[in-house]
């Protein structure tokens, strides 16, 4: 009982209320994130409608297979995150730590593949603002390089912002592993694991939209 009371902050009546408050707080934060990424997607929609061929051509410069693999990696990481939360609910400390580490590993694999993709774009001179040189030959549509530049700007802004969220997510999980190692979570109290899970799944959802919108335009 004494342990239960030590995790209950004094402003809450009971653990249930505390759990509800932390979940709602996380959702309030995630709503601001939805609107933040919503702004990027809205900008994307405006410019894609203006330059449909440039977006189609730009998309062909991306490797859809790498994008698909990364999608699968993220979905796997969401599964392991969900199982980590489940382990916490059941008070299984060892499997909680295991699933958290597995989720971190999959998140790192995603980021590693992203680094590979970015460096490839660097060698192709397709990074706006850093080393953009209009390509000598186009894959399918001969478009204004300035419009291609707009597509690539959206690609790097959106995937870069997503990658930043992934880096933050992996860091949060690292903290959770330490806390879990010290036995700070139980089936009574696992709120940090629950809300970190919400964040992780949200970042997964962002990628679920980014993948078809960036990699799969006019593949036919």
């Amino acid at each position: 009982m004494s342990e239960t009371h030590s995790v209950l902050a004094h402003q809450f009546d009971d653990l249930e209320q505390q759990f509800e408050a932390s979940t709602l707080g996380m959702w309030a934060f995630l709503i601001t994130e939805v609107l933040f990424f919503g702004g990027l997607f809205t900008g994307y929609a405006v410019y894609r409608s203006q330059y449909p061929l440039a977006f189609a051509e730009g998309s062909l410069h991306l490797d859809y297979r790498i994008g698909a693999i990364n999608t699968a990696v993220l979905i796997c990481s969401s599964l392991t995150m969900a199982l980590a939360v489940r382990s916490a609910q059941l008070g299984r400390r060892r499997s909680l730590i295991g699933f958290l580490l597995l989720t971190m590993l999959l998140g790192s694999v995603f980021l590693g593949i992203k680094v590979f993709e970015y460096s490839h774009k660097y060698h192709e001179h397709l990074i706006p603002g850093i080393n953009f040189v209009p390509p000598h030959e186009f894959i399918r549509y001969h478009v204004d390089p300035q419009q291609l530049y707009v597509f690539l700007s959206f690609y790097f802004a959106m995937t870069g912002m997503h990658a930043l969220h992934m880096i933050i997510g992996v860091s949060v999980l690292a903290v959770l592993v330490v806390l879990a190692w010290r036995g700070r979570f139980s089936s009574e109290y696992y709120n940090p694991v629950e809300v970190a899970g919400l964040y992780w799944h949200f970042v997964d959802i962002v990628w679920i939209f980014l993948f078809p919108l960036l990699y799969l335009i006019s593949r036919s």
């Binding site: 969401s78 899970g197 799944h201 679920i208």
Partner: peptide, 9 residues
């Protein structure tokens, strides 16, 4: 996204 929100989240 809906499936992730309903079940995973």
């Amino acid at each position: 996204a809906t499936i992730v929100i309903l079940y995973f989240m």
